[in-house]
Every structure is written in structure tokens, then in C-alpha cells.
């Protein structure tokens, strides 16, 4: 995945069954963001692989004050890339979801 400066990782072991997974997001390289970033640490959240849209979660992070509007796209892309990888791994390992 492209290095967006925003890192998203699993915050729990993926058993391949749950549709909702715990993720952790943090800024690895603030220089890659367009807006000024206030260092708040890592953000833990849950994401429904079947029903949620990464860009919507990114927008909620903007509305909660973690990021500026101009960085919503880059945050959304970072989440989308990680979600795609998780789904790909599940397909590869033959998980039901």
C-alpha cells in the first residue's frame, strides 16, 4: 500500500470470522498531511468490514477533531488500504467472510 504517512493496523488478532474488527490508526509522518496535525496519539476504533465505508469513518475523525477536513481523503485511503488487505487475507485463507 502507498505510504500515506497514516498507519492503520489491526488492534486485535483477526480470526477471519468477525465482521467487526478493532483497528488502530496513528500518524507516522505528519509532513505527509496537508493540514496542521495536533499529535493526539493513536486512535482505536472498530470497523464493520461488511457495512462500513472507510471514508465515512475518516469524516467522523475529522468531525471529532482528530484531523482537518483537508486530510479526510488521505485518512480514508489509509483505512481503505488496510481493510482491503484484511479482506484479501481472509479470501486467501478461505475464511467465511
Amino acid at each position: 500500500a502507498e505510504d500515506t504517512g497514516v498507519r492503520v493496523e489491526l488492534n486485535e488478532e483477526d480470526d477471519g470470522k468477525k465482521s467487526t474488527i478493532a483497528l488502530k490508526l496513528w500518524v507516522e509522518d505528519a509532513k505527509k498531511l496537508k493540514g496542521k496535525y495536533k499529535d493526539t496519539g493513536a486512535i482505536e476504533f472498530t470497523f464493520d468490514l461488511q457495512n462500513e465505508v472507510p471514508e465515512v469513518v475518516a469524516q467522523e475523525m475529522v468531525e471529532s477533531g482528530f484531523f482537518l477536513e483537508c486530510d479526510a481523503k488521505i485518512v480514508g485511503k489509509s483505512i481503505r488500504d488496510r481493510v482491503a488487505l484484511i479482506k484479501w487475507r481472509r479470501v486467501r485463507t478461505g475464511s467465511p467472510n
Binding site: K24, W26, G41, E44, F45, T46, E60, E63, S64
Partner: peptide, 27 residues
């Protein structure tokens, strides 16, 4: 505790925690 909880109006819960050790790029 170093964690803080932010609940978005849509109901999503964000928990702020320290960045995992060694996971920040060197400036």
C-alpha cells in the same frame, strides 16, 4: 491513564492511546 475516549455524534467510539513503541518514523 494515558487513554481518552471520544464518542462521535454518530455513536462511534474512538479511544486515544499512546502510539505503539518504535512505530514513529525518525524525523
Amino acid at each position: 491513564s494515558a487513554t481518552a475516549q471520544v464518542v462521535h455524534s454518530a455513536g462511534r467510539r474512538f479511544i486515544v492511546s499512546p502510539v505503539p513503541e518504535g512505530r514513529l518514523k525518525e524525523p
